[in-house]
Design a protein around this nucleic acid. Structure first.
Lengths: 205, 205
DNA sequence: AGCCAAACTAGACACTGTCAAGATAAATCA
DNA sequence: TGATTTATCTTGACAGTGTCTAGTTTGGCT
């Protein structure tokens, strides 16, 4: 833990400090220099490890994609549940991630803040998206096992459900969902909302 | 149009300049001083009219709420359509607003950027939300005119559909919906997605 | 021991938001 | 009309920011 010239694990410390500051002060007030101060290093140290501010936020986003993917996977592992319940659990996990990892979530979905074309970013992003898509594909497969669903419709469903939970999280974080603050009612609202949009088995064109 | 000491309509000009700069350079690069430069006034002129940067963005957000509300209203005025089509049109209008007024949309749903507790902001925000809610209520009313739908379920549907279009717009703007760039396929994707989540007449609890 | 590359610091520069104080023009009123 | 008041805008300053360059320290290697 002694931080002299060679911190040992400064890169990770800087990412942690960034997340911490994002949660407390918010994105607008975040500064590289304050991150450096929080980590106890000089003001230009972050630039050495991450190039620039966008590079640091890129690391935050990549970490976020990993956490999200893991959360989605974990939501599907426990057995003995109906396909609908599994899908609800995935959506619930997505929203819970967004609400409990506000800093990561915000950075992940604002590509202008990051180097969103860097290989590591693209890889992490696609990996998380793949897990999400798998959840929905599994649901559709188990829901209508006999008939083949056209790929186009699968894609539309993926986008629709993703939009659903993503929009809910965004509206919630932006304070647009009223003053449902206490946890109990919050969970009920989320489940109500999610349950109301499980797609029908046969969708009319 | 001559801008000497008294510009005449500087406040509006500053808002326009802000929107223009937001579209070209993006939120991260926006600076009060550049806005002032764009409007041809001194660097501290914006502060006089809007107090601070958040004040200027507040004006942008309020303008955005007005445009959104008007777009939603306009989507419902033309007659002779099924309730489903009307609902689709409302959702489509919401998404079209988000994609064509990126600057406004981004500012509107990031309360940390604005004085989101100011009376004008709250009024404009609630007004737009009320129009949106009316669209959905009208749909539900026409869809099942006989039975009374519990208020709780109506609220859940409002949140669900709002989340739907809001999340779609966000994911789209963040570049997470693949490379569906040309307009034709874009419209089809949007309609596919929207059509796939029109709520069922009778939702199981 | 000697050297090298990586890790970090120190200083500087242009730029930012905001504040105080001053200058100017328009509106008001005698 | 002419004086004064008021809103509008400018000027200058300050602390803080991101990033660049050059320098300093350190650990690992042969």
């Amino acid at each position: 833990m002694k931080a002299k010239y060679h911190h040992g694990d400064l890169a990770n410390s800087l990412v942690s400090a960034t997340v911490s500051l994002l949660q407390t002060r918010g994105l607008a007030q975040l500064s590289l220099r304050e991150v450096a101060r929080e980590a106890g290093v000089s003001h230009a140290a972050p630039a050495h490890h991450f190039g620039d501010k966008a590079g640091l936020l890129t690391a935050v986003a990549i970490e976020g994609y990993g956490v999200l993917a893991e959360a989605l996977r974990a939501s599907q592992t426990l057995g003995c549940r109906s396909p609908e319940q599994r899908l609800l659990d995935a959506g619930f996990a997505y929203i819970q991630f967004a609400l409990s990892h506000t800093a990561h979530f915000e950075v992940m979905f604002h590509p202008a803040l990051t180097h969103s074309e860097s290989p590591e970013y693209v890889t992490a992003s696609l990996a998380a998206k793949a897990v999400l898509e798998t959840c929905i594909r599994n649901f559709l497969r188990q829901q209508s096992p006999l008939e083949q669903i056209p790929e186009r419709q699968i894609q539309a469903t993926v986008i629709a459900l993703w939009s659903q939970v993503h929009g809910f999280a965004n509206l919630w974080l932006a304070g647009n969902l009223g003053d449902v603050t206490d946890t109990v009612r919050r969970d009920m609202v989320i489940l109500d909302v999610l349950a109301s949009v499980i797609p029908r088995p046969h969708q009319p064109t």
